[in-house]
Amino acid sequence: MAVVHGPVRITGNRQISLPKALLEQAEMHTGDHVHLMLDDDGTVRVVNTRTVSEWIARGRSITAPSTENEGDGNA
């Protein structure tokens, strides 16, 4: 079951602050790198790079949103 943390505000610089409790539960730390994934239903996931590396090592396909493949220069 998903645990909701927030709401959080997106700043003028398009930044958000993740709640400390969420970071602790996700075992993420200051300085960690993350990937942002956009699901078909509009859900945005924040995934630790370590987790994505494990997925790739196990042969799991990581698909990007279709706009990323359209060559708009924003990838």
Results as ranks from 00 to 15, higher is better:
Asp32Ile: 05
Val34Cys: 09
Leu22Gln: 01
Gly59Tyr: 05
Ser66Asp: 07
Asn13Ala: 11
Ala64Lys: 10
Val44Glu: 07
Gly59Phe: 10
Leu23Met: 11
Ala2Glu: 14
Ile16Ala: 01
Thr63Trp: 00
Gly73Ile: 05
Ser61Phe: 06
His35Phe: 11
Glu70Asp: 10
Gly73Asn: 12
Ala57Asn: 06
Arg45Asp: 02
Thr67Ala: 14
Ile16Tyr: 01
Ser53Glu: 15
Asn48Gly: 10
Asp32Arg: 02
Val8Asn: 02
Glu54Ile: 09
Gly6Tyr: 01
Arg14Phe: 08
Ser53Ile: 03
Leu22Asp: 04
His5Ile: 04
Val44Phe: 03
Ile56Pro: 00
Thr11Leu: 10
Leu23Asn: 03
Val4Asp: 10
Gln15Met: 13
Gly31Lys: 11
Asp41His: 01
Ala75Gly: 00
Thr51Val: 15
Val3His: 07
Gly59Cys: 07
Ile16Gln: 00
Asn74Gln: 15
Met37Thr: 06
Gly12Trp: 01
Glu68Phe: 09
Gly6Trp: 03
Ser61Trp: 04
Gly31Val: 02
Pro65Cys: 05
Glu54Gly: 01
Arg58His: 13
Arg60Pro: 00
Leu36Ala: 04
Ile62Lys: 09
Val4Met: 01
Ile56Gln: 14
Met37Arg: 09
Asp40Lys: 13
Asn69Phe: 14
Gly59Glu: 08
His29Cys: 06
Arg14His: 05
Leu22Thr: 08
His33Val: 09
Gln25Ile: 04
Leu36Lys: 06
Leu38Gln: 09
Asp41Gln: 01
His33Met: 08
Thr63Met: 06
Ser53Trp: 06
Gly12Ser: 11
Asp32Ala: 08
Asp32Pro: 08
